[in-house]
Amino acid sequence: MQRRHDIDALRVIAFSLLILYHSAMVHVADWDFHIKSTYQAEWLQYPMIALNRWRMPLLFMISGIALGLAGIEGRRWRFAGTRSLRLLLPLAFGMLVVVPPQTFFQVVTQYGYTGGFAHFYALYLGHGLCRAGHCLLTPTWNHLWYLAYLLPYTLLLLATVPLLRWLRERLGNAEPTPLSAALLLALPILWLLCVRFWLAPRFPETHALFDDWVVHAESLPLFLLGYVLSTCAGFWRWACRLRWRMLGVALAAIGVELGLRWLGHHPPAGPMPDWASRVPWNTIERIARATYTWTALLALFGWSRALLDRPFRWLPYCSEAVFSWYILHQTLIVALAGWLIPMRLGAGVEATLVVSGTIAGCLLLHEGLIRRTGWLRPLFGLKALPRTAAPRPLPHPVP
């Protein structure tokens, strides 16, 4: 397996941002979440949107890149078995053990449920929970939907390896020509734009796997593209060389999208000029969104290649820890918020305690229990330790 430190580091950073993102979901106004604070702010929507446009596309692309770097072509069906087990075990364990506290706090705060957790858990394992016309289908995977999607995507990739490998060989190691560079810039944006125009108005995002056409249309092609581009050295040199320009385009595009969104919520006083009423603002916003998503991904890959492709001492530890942190973090966020919200400590104190408590909880549970307990490791996506091996200690700063 080829070791790409920049991809490993980018994966750690992308998963770490989920703690901030899901913690902010407690406080962002007008967005649904499992639990909501009494302190909510509309302005949080804007940095959340800027992050949300590329956070999951980045993770799916990184997953495809990791498979391309793993050299699975000669052992793909054996790999299919091991990868299926490594994804299904954490998903099943998460749905049965990790996720239920999230749903418990949700039904307490949103449905007025007054029973204890034991009674709730029996309902959770049954046919679902309904109150006042609102129903939750349980057991559910909540934030673990990424694992549920990654499994069929991986199996599809393994089935199409001959075609994808042919595409990768055609790209080669040379930098893209002017024509191929233009296509590499334009085609993903056009595809994402088609999704926004034709699928998004008709199919809501559900994260329920079988009917989530918008998410599949956005995520699966990027996952497969990550595999194709993984070993194309010319692409990575090209992305690194264009990182400033892609960053500039991405910032301009998200500025347009957020600016139009803000004007939509805060229209100027007085009648709209005739020319403004004829401008297709919704179309411009969708173009800006699609452009931002792809150019932000290119900028992230370029900058990570330039700055992160080195063997940081913290990277091996964090690369192993990131999976268990991902599984744990949202349950800790919801549980901490459910405990803190009734205290009315103030927005800043409450948010700080939720974020810091989640980080501390993930660290303590991973370091003190999960990585040191053989039977727990596969339930959190960690490889089994060799019998003679001991867990690596926490990294220390370089003197």
Rank of each mutant, 00 (worst) to 15 (best):
P152F: 00
R165S: 13
L157C: 04
P162R: 05
Y149P: 03
G172C: 09
G172M: 13
N142V: 09
N173R: 13
L164Q: 07
V161C: 11
L157F: 02
P139W: 05
G172K: 09
T140L: 10
A174M: 13
L150E: 03
Y146G: 03
G172P: 05
N173T: 14
V161G: 06
L150G: 01
Y153D: 00
W141P: 01
T138Q: 06
N142T: 03
V161Y: 09
P178L: 11
N173F: 04
Y146K: 03
P152N: 00
E169M: 10
A159P: 05
R165F: 03
T160C: 13
C135T: 11
P178F: 09
W166C: 05
V161N: 04
L179A: 14
L155E: 01
L157Y: 04
C135A: 10
E169C: 09
L155Y: 01
V161A: 08
P152M: 01
N142G: 02
A174E: 15
A148R: 04
L167M: 14
L157E: 01
A174H: 14
Y146V: 03
V161S: 07
Y149E: 05
L158H: 06
P162E: 08
L147A: 07
T177R: 11
A159E: 05
T138M: 08
L156P: 04
L158E: 06
P162Q: 08
L158M: 13
L147Y: 02
W166N: 04
A174I: 03
T154E: 01
L136P: 07
L147R: 00
Y146P: 01
T140I: 08
L137A: 14
L156Q: 00
C135G: 12
N173L: 07
L156F: 08
W166A: 15
L164S: 05
P176Q: 11
R165N: 10
R170I: 08
P152G: 02
Y149H: 06
L144I: 00
R165W: 07
L179I: 15
L136D: 06
P176T: 13
P139S: 09
L157G: 03
T140H: 12
L137V: 14
A174K: 14
L158Q: 05
E175M: 14
L151A: 06
L147V: 07
R170Y: 08
L171F: 12
L179D: 07
P162N: 07
A159L: 15
R165G: 04
H143P: 07
T177M: 09
E169S: 10
E175G: 11
L171T: 10
L167A: 15
R165D: 14
Y153K: 02
N173Y: 05
T154R: 04
N142E: 15
L158I: 11
P162M: 03
T177C: 09
A174D: 14
H143Y: 05
T154M: 03
G172D: 10
N142I: 05
W141L: 03
L150A: 09
A174S: 15
L151V: 03
N142P: 00
L157N: 02
P152D: 00
P139M: 10
A148Q: 04
L157I: 05
T138D: 06
G172I: 11
N142S: 12
L151K: 08
E175Q: 13
A174N: 13
L163F: 13
L136M: 11
L163C: 07
T138L: 07
A159V: 09
L147T: 04
L158Y: 06
Y153V: 03
P162W: 06
C135F: 10
G172N: 11
L179E: 12
N142F: 06
L150C: 04
L155H: 02
E175P: 08
Y153A: 12
Y146S: 02
L147Q: 06
